[in-house]
Simulated scan of single mutants.
Amino acid sequence: MAGFALLQTHEIKGFEEFREVVAGAPREVVQIQKGMLSGRLSHALIDGLRIDTASFNLGLRTKGVSGADGVVIGMLADSTDRVTRFSYESCPGDVLVTPPGTEHENRYYGGSKVIIASIRSEDISSSFACEGELSDPAAWRRSHYKGNAHTVQSVVPRLQSLVARLGNAPLTAESADFWKRAVIEAMSANIVQGRSSERDGPRPSALKIVRQVEEYLDEAGPGPVHISKICSYMHLPRRTLHRAFQEALGIGPIAFLKHRRLCSVHAALRLPRDSRTISDIALHYGFQSLGRFSGYYYRMFGEYPSETRRARRTPHQNGSPRIESPQP
């Protein structure tokens, strides 16, 4: 398994086991609410990005100091009662930024779920290269950002299932980099949203931008490429890239990248000697949910992935291709 390792997932019995939700950053934990505390901890790593998740059923008071190896973004995924982090009232979907070596103190009045990403300095510089001051790790300060309905209904479930899905999946270096960037983007969406871009202004020819992106994707090969990597390569903020694609192609860059990835999956499914499962191929090209991917695929090609695989071409004995008969 390259690039991603699910380090540990285990059931918790007792508040003491929550003292190190983030590896290397111990905290003091006091159980506040009466009852038998239980929950679950998961520690995962994807291409250097540490992702920790915790869920618990009773109120806690926690405090400590964040580790020294990166900026920590903590998202409140769910709660049954009030949550205060520092002096901030937090609701599900809210994120709290904690720079390295910063004190933190949280009060959970009931059961809660949290997702925590520890982002290294080099990943901040790479993922936010065209987002102004966010590209400088030293500019990140302790801050609280409000979430929204989309974060709660879409982003949180996607992050939770992604950790579980990737745990046993074989990934190439390219697909691991894609998923790392996807996690960073999801965790930081509330932070980036609404910030003005320092680079907005007169833009180059839209068609020229699209051609340069296509050339970059061709050179990168068939694996998935995250949009933040394209922005870094082009030295353009995302909104400028979006305007260029809309002007030149009538669709945004994310939709265009999805179409390219669907085409790559289609081509892989037609290869006669590709023994990977459809699920593994889809994951390699950046599709997490097999059901949602199948829907995208059907709308794109008018058939389901399994139909493409059954009808794939295989080499004939004389060198000419033939079509396999559909399997029952």
Rank of each mutant, 00 (worst) to 15 (best):
S188M: 02
A164S: 15
P170M: 09
Q193E: 04
N190P: 02
F178K: 02
M187V: 13
I191G: 11
A189R: 14
A169D: 13
K180W: 10
T172E: 07
V156K: 01
A186C: 12
T172P: 01
L166G: 04
A176E: 11
V192C: 13
E174L: 08
E185W: 07
S154Q: 15
K180I: 10
V155D: 02
Q193S: 07
Q153L: 01
R181H: 08
G167W: 03
V163A: 08
L171Y: 03
V192Q: 07
N190T: 05
A182Y: 04
W179D: 06
L162I: 07
P157R: 04
T172H: 05
F178Q: 05
A182Q: 11
Q153S: 01
W179I: 06
P157C: 05
K180Y: 14
V192K: 08
R195A: 04
A186K: 06
S188L: 05
V183G: 03
N190C: 06
R195M: 14
N168G: 14
Q153I: 01
V192W: 01
Q160P: 02
A176W: 12
R158N: 03
A169Y: 15
K180E: 10
T172K: 12
E185D: 12
P170H: 05
E185C: 10
A186L: 11
V156S: 01
M187C: 09
R181S: 12
R195H: 02
G194T: 10
W179Q: 06
E174Y: 01
N168P: 03
Q193F: 03
S188V: 03
L159W: 06
S154M: 03
E174A: 09
A186Y: 07
S154W: 06
Q160H: 10
S175D: 05
Q193C: 03
A182N: 10
S161D: 12
S161P: 00
G194Q: 09
V155F: 00
A189N: 06
V183M: 05
L162T: 10
A189V: 15
K180C: 13
W179C: 10
V192T: 10
K180T: 12
I184L: 00
V155M: 02
A176Y: 13
V183D: 04
A186W: 09
N190F: 00
E185F: 13
Q160C: 11
W179H: 09
A173M: 08
L166M: 05
I191M: 14
M187K: 13
Q153T: 00
N168W: 10
Q193N: 03
S188A: 07
R165Y: 03
L162Q: 14
R158G: 04
T172Y: 03
K180A: 08
L166S: 02
E174M: 06
